[in-house]
Computed example of a mutant assay.
Amino acid sequence: MPHEDHPTSTVNAVEEHEAKDRVAEIFADIKATKNLDFVPRFWRVIATNPVQLDLVWTTLKTLMHPEAVGRTAKLDAATREMVALAVSATNACPYCINSHTAALRKLGIDEEALGEVMAIAGLFNMTNALASGYQIEPDVRPPH
């Protein structure tokens, strides 16, 4: 039963025991790749559209779990999760904030470091809004 303070999903999640074919394969891959004993609700909800599930999982696995697809990432796992957390906070996504905070805690990131991530995300939300609002022309540019 959903918590009173949180909205209910707009569709019914696909239960793990009901998953078939490609959805069942992806559910098994999610659990194995993320080292979980359950399929998180996000994946079960988007599984109502198996094509979307496949696209999102394949992309997320490639970028967030590169070792699972034989790729070596330039960013370490904690940095990738910090970026995901900062964007999730900026987009005000409670589900994603909790998910990426949990992932960071699993990676050993403490509350003080999480506070730094939030402080930096908040700072740049403010400075971006100021630069945009004032329409400040860029004068500090990366090298070509």
Rank of each mutant, 00 (worst) to 15 (best):
P142D: 05
N128R: 03
L55T: 05
A113C: 10
I46S: 08
L63H: 10
D21S: 15
H17F: 14
A131I: 08
R105Q: 07
R41C: 07
S88M: 09
P2N: 09
T62I: 06
V87R: 04
Q52I: 03
V14A: 02
A32H: 06
V56A: 14
S99W: 03
N98D: 12
I136D: 02
E137S: 12
A86N: 04
E16C: 07
V69S: 05
D76Y: 01
F38W: 01
M82R: 11
D37H: 13
S88N: 03
S9F: 15
S132N: 15
E15A: 03
R105E: 02
P143G: 08
A13S: 05
L53F: 03
N128Q: 00
E67S: 08
P143S: 15
Y95V: 00
A113V: 14
L114D: 13
L123I: 09
L53W: 08
L60A: 06
V117M: 06
F42Y: 10
I120Q: 10
Q135F: 01
T8Q: 13
T62K: 15
R80P: 08
A102M: 04
A84F: 04
V117C: 05
V87N: 01
A77E: 14
A113H: 01
D139T: 15
A28W: 06
H100Y: 09
D76C: 00
G70A: 02
E16A: 11
L55S: 13
A119Y: 10
R105A: 06
H3I: 09
D54T: 02
Q135Y: 00
A24L: 12
L85G: 13
V11G: 07
D54Y: 12
G122M: 07
A102I: 02
W57A: 05
H144Y: 03
E112R: 14
A86R: 06
A47H: 03
K20T: 08
V87S: 04
F38H: 08
K74H: 13
